[in-house]
Nucleic acid binder design. Structure first.
Lengths: 341, 341
DNA sequence: AACCCGCCATGAAACGGTTCATAATGTAGC
DNA sequence: GCTACATTATGAACCGTTTCATGGCGGGTT
């Protein structure tokens, strides 16, 4: 059980009493020390220490209105992609002395909603969200009520919401085209649910590449939905695929964590990469280049993504939203090519 | 610029007026709907929708006092070790419908202090902290003022503060002893600053192993402080070491991110692992087993660590603190041994 | 001496909820 | 018809800050 305070926390009134001044003066010491005579200030500061007074943030915020905090809601806090983005956000925020609170929705719309509500109720200046659903009506509502909202890693179609994204259609296209170039004609795509926009977009990109190459997606593509977008999800998905018998020659994974699970499984199953099966990941996280079979991956500018999102939140246009779209690049390594580079 | 609300947010009084009821009734609809007649409730709910009313969390909390949120402050949100711990925390909290806010101190005591203050001022039920300094007086102060505090990944000597940790002395010892067993007599330790307790403890463990083996640490050990505990830090540190000429035959890295940077650098420098140089990491993150040279690493039970910490915060003893200490294990792989397993 | 001004300190209003004692209304029992 | 009681709704007090109009005071100017 969390231990309750022995008794009520000291309030500004307690401090005022102890220092023999009025509450207004204590508040001034706290917020505009230059307005109060050094002598009094010291007395007040002594009383503050004495009572180990801590300002009540709720009361402060209730009255003052503003707070220099922004929130970020990502799909999975254990995914290096999102934490790298978070670092980008933090660095930008530091410049303006804002603080960041991060929460993870775990791909769950309910959790997203819950954290969104929490942030909104506590009056954050704005919130950056990687939505877990295709529908962003709930985010529009937040925006309408006056809280800043920036879509993260996801383009916005709505004029009232800014977004910072990377072209996922193009990313899917790059990956698929590369595999086609390598001679594959039957490709598995371990994707997340299409309710996550990024997944749907990457799928679209893959289709585009296939059609351009004159292939029929119905036969050339096997899309499997991974249950959780991490190594365990990748492992389960590839096992399912291997057991199904009709095995493709290449696997495109919706992110590098999934690819990690795939590589791990293929190794234990003695399936050689890339000769028996080529693998392509997404995000190009730090370890991708150092894997036993260095992983071909679609690189996204994580840092810039986060920094730009924070920037839009802090300095964005007042009325019209801005939509930033970065371009991904493909980094070809050994997992998909016998002749990388 | 963050766009201000067109005008003041709707308050409970606005809702009351619109629905033709009193503020008390609106509050009841919000908090104990069963106490209000279905007809009135519907009118109030309609008004809430109409005005798109969102409760003001500050006001609510100011009056009601409590909040079901806890905070976590970790050293580096981009380090998989900490995010895995965060996952463990989240899962435990979910059971009690608590929410988690994560902040990253970036090894900076000032940032830690800033976030700590933010959490405390906003009245979180408790906070889990991986302290950036050896001194935890500031945490004791928070505890005394009535906010729950649990030390994360770090033992507590103080009876008033609970802690959940993994034995870092033992971890350092395991790693060093293994390298000694492999025949190395000159070991580099790419460590973080000793102000971070874990780093100091691991150092102590290394010393212990060296002494037990009858070696003089002064000659057998080269400790280098990495500037930032990530791949870039590892890269810079190992480069410095290589340039210094007098090259050791084994490198123990304070975490797997640093080890990743080391492996990357050694590969570009054409130094073979483990024959030219053995490498051991710490944390056994997900990708460690899948690296080009699978990485020997000290494994810590991340999930249990987080879950237990959350548990202590929610159900911990009222008066006496509890100190949980997990034991690390060494996972031997090819980066340090020609005959792994 | 009268006036003005700047400097500090004061104390009450306001922020937007929750809570609780009280009132209003309806129902049942005698 | 009267009392007893349950059910709903009311509205004022309160939480702990910030803010601002007000006032006291001392010194400089006319």
């Amino acid at each position: 059980m969390i231990q309750p305070a022995a008794h009520r926390r000291a309030s500004i009134a307690d401090v005022a009493r102890a220092a023999g001044v009025s509450v207004g003066t204590v508040s001034n010491v706290l917020n505009r020390p230059e307005r109060v005579l050094p002598g009094t200030r010291e007395r007040v500061e002594a009383a503050i220490d004495e009572l180990s007074f801590v300002r009540n943030g709720s009361a402060r915020q209730l009255r003052a209105g503003t707070i220099t905090t922004v929130g970020a809601i990502v799909l999975d806090i254990a995914n290096p992609f999102f934490t790298d983005v978070a670092r980008g956000i933090e660095e930008r925020l530091d410049r303006d002395d804002f603080t960041l609170m991060v929460a993870s929705s775990d791909d769950d719309p309910d959790r997203e909603q819950r954290y969104l509500r929490l942030f909104e109720e506590h009056g954050v200046q704005g919130v950056m969200v990687v939505p877990a659903t295709n529908d962003i009506e709930h985010l529009l509502a937040v925006r309408r009520r006056g809280t800043g909202v920036v879509l993260l890693d996801r383009p916005s179609s709505d004029p009232s919401i800014s977004s910072v994204a990377v072209d996922d259609v193009r990313g899917g296209e790059l990956a698929a085209r590369h595999l086609l170039d390598e001679g594959h004609t039957r490709i598995a795509f371990l994707n997340g649910p299409h309710t996550i926009r990024q997944c749907a977009d990457r799928h679209e990109g893959v289709l585009k590449a296939l059609v351009e190459a004159g292939l029929d997606p119905a036969t050339a593509l096997v899309e499997t939905t991974v249950t959780s977008l991490n190594a365990e999800g990748g492992e389960a998905a590839i096992r399912g695929l291997l057991e199904s018998g009709d095995r493709p020659t290449a696997v495109f994974c919706v992110n590098d964590l999934v690819a990690l699970g795939v590589l791990r499984t293929l190794r234990t199953e003695n399936i050689t990469v890339p000769t028996d099966m080529a693998v392509v990941g997404y995000d190009d996280v730090a370890f991708a280049a150092e894997l036993s079979t260095p992983l071909t991956s679609v690189r996204q500018p994580t840092h810039e993504l986060g920094a730009r999102a924070a920037d839009l939140l802090l300095n964005g246009p007042d009325t019209t939203a801005e939509h930033v779209m970065f371009q991904p690049t493909l980094v070809i390594r050994r997992s998909s090519s016998s002749t990388p580079r």
